[in-house]
């Protein structure tokens, strides 16, 4: 972890207008929960639907994409990463620091708003808010690592990230039962399900598999990103 790299990365992510990219979706979700609460329509079933469809199905992959690619892809694209990499700092440290920044942003802009939305709707009932908070935190970490890896592997990180989130996670994971075993969203729901006692949802993937998968994917992506950054080529204009 390098404090200067973290500080510059935070400035790049939440400085000026970019903050609105991070704030918009969580605000919509919390606002929706508040509206349901104020109109007395908030119940546990609706809360679970909001968590599954909005928090896990939309907010989490989109924030993962914005944050995971945002901490490094743009810097690689325009070449400014050269100012961090031309220093006597091991390049994996650069990757791990950026991952930590991305993880912290996922907690603040995805997991905590998920908890707030759940709590606003049903309070502590059946552990829905806490379950989805822990689930989105764990899933958010994995998404950040995966999208960071995609960013250092390819110059088309956002496009590939969108295809991954929409096609694999959204479509294949929803239709093909076997593919669910390899979906971060499903692992997220397994964590949530293990904490929550709500009868309104049941995870498809066993907790043991989901927990191991989350750890393997996160660590694997982080280590691979660090190694890939060591060999990152930056060329001039000729």
């Amino acid at each position: 972890m390098n404090a200067t790299i973290a500080a510059v990365t935070y400035r790049g992510m939440i400085g000026s207008r970019r903050i609105w990219l991070l704030v918009a979706l969580p605000l919509i979700m919390v606002g929706l929960a508040l509206l349901l609460r104020l109109t007395n329509q908030a119940d546990e079933q609706l809360a679970v639907i909001l968590m599954q469809r909005f928090a896990v199905g939309a907010l989490l992959p989109l924030m993962g994409l914005i944050v995971g690619t945002g901490v490094i892809a743009r810097e690689i694209e325009d070449g400014v990463i050269i100012y961090m990499l031309s220093k006597p700092i091991p390049r994996p440290v650069v990757a791990y620091t950026k991952l930590l920044v991305a993880v912290s942003l996922m907690i603040v802009f995805a997991a905590i708003p998920t908890f707030l939305a759940g709590y606003l709707m049903v309070g502590a009932e059946s552990g829905v808010a806490t379950g989805f908070f822990l689930g989105t935190a764990a899933g958010g970490i994995a998404y950040a690592a995966v999208f960071l890896l995609i960013s250092v592997l390819t110059r088309y990180a956002v496009t590939i990230g969108v295809i991954y989130a929409l096609i694999w996670e959204g479509l294949v994971g929803g239709i093909v039962p076997g593919a669910r075993q390899f979906s971060i969203q499903q692992w997220t729901q397994s964590i949530a399900d293990s904490v929550s006692s709500s009868p309104f949802f049941k995870a498809d993937v066993p907790l043991g598999f989901a927990a191991v998968a989350l750890i393997v994917v996160t660590l694997g992506a982080a280590i691979w990103s660090g190694q890939r950054l060591r060999s990152l080529s930056i060329t001039g204009d000729d």
Binding site: G79, V80, Y83
Partner: peptide, 9 residues
């Protein structure tokens, strides 16, 4: 480097 881009913020 030749590239003009730096951390503009």
């Amino acid at each position: 480097p030749e590239r003009e881009a730096v951390y503009g913020f």
